[in-house]
Design a protein around this nucleic acid. Sequence first.
DNA 1: AGACTAAACGGACCGCGGTCCGTTTCTATT
DNA 2: AATAGAAACGGACCGCGGTCCGTTTAGTCT
Lengths: 194, 194
Amino acid sequence: MTPVTAAERSDAARNRERLLLAARDLIEQGGAVALTMDRLAEHAGVGKGTVFRRFGSRAGLMLTLLNDSEAAFQARFLFGPPPLGPGAAPVDRLVAFGIERIAYVVEYGDLVLAAGNASRGRFEVPAVALWNQHVEMLLRAGGVVSREPGLLAGSLTATLDPERLLHLIREHGVTSDRLAASWSELVTRVAGSA
Amino acid sequence: MTPVTAAERSDAARNRERLLLAARDLIEQGGAVALTMDRLAEHAGVGKGTVFRRFGSRAGLMLTLLNDSEAAFQARFLFGPPPLGPGAAPVDRLVAFGIERIAYVVEYGDLVLAAGNASRGRFEVPAVALWNQHVEMLLRAGGVVSREPGLLAGSLTATLDPERLLHLIREHGVTSDRLAASWSELVTRVAGSA
DNA sequence: AGACTAAACGGACCGCGGTCCGTTTCTATT
DNA sequence: AATAGAAACGGACCGCGGTCCGTTTAGTCT
């Protein structure tokens, strides 16, 4: 029986492995800035065309690199223990969501930044849509009634924009704690409980 | 008496004029995407080095192009008639500020976008700092007491991020009116008056 | 007018992300 | 084992923003 999605050819699989290995290696050495597509190709012993065939773009590569940790993050706020996961009060979950997101951005810094420069802008990333839905759901569950719940949720997630967060942290010395506190304040204000 | 800032040399002035003219010309024809630095140089009959000497970067050029309208916008919310300018209730001014900003982004679209890709990111633009201060001032005046007024103000202005606004408008068909309504809702919620 | 200097000029050059297409390699079929 | 066709490969090539530095030019001083 032939698989519906054609199986990956062996050389393709081997090269993908090589590329991911080489990519993590380059990043470990010189950060995300050191990861150019030419260098990656050379470092992995592969043609440049192959790199783009695999990942489509630099942003796509970064997304692939972040895939595991992103999935883990999603799993935590969807199914994990409270206060992030189900079980806690919606507003508390919302607060926890932002705080965890801030921590995530801090941890993966440049990677997240580079992943954002996708072809269609940094809003086409599938994860962003998921966060919006999640935030929207929590707002509703928290009793927030709005004529534009999607836009309101989007406004909140805009606050967590990686570029903004990293800019504040790196150029203005703002700590994660202060960002978390500010997020918490914003959320509680919007949710209505003074 | 020699001026403190050395006067601009005549050839420099002439070239700046040529460049701005050529830039507006190119944009009129093919939008901001059609404005590449090479084409601009050629179209203006000037060397490429001269373009960069003048404007520093593509973003710098865009900023220069927007300078007049930006200044006009600033003048309106700083000194203009209510509800945008002084005289109206702070929250009303805040609402008006966002609405006008949305209209501005819609009008100048790609220009604003391109201006945002500055070397140090889109937060180093001087105007951004001014808006933050303005929003912060209005929040205070509106009776909002916060431990992190600057960050709270920043969260609000993040909602007005041009890339976000244009993405919603262009890719999701959201109207300016809905964005304005959402902004209004957000501001009134944050300012505490349900 | 001529000479001197600082400023402005111009375009070859660089590294980047991304594309294109002729060539190679894998795998299923007989 | 031979073959055919699809998939993957690789690297020359492109246009971009941005830099560098030898050359030209405008303004000033005598």
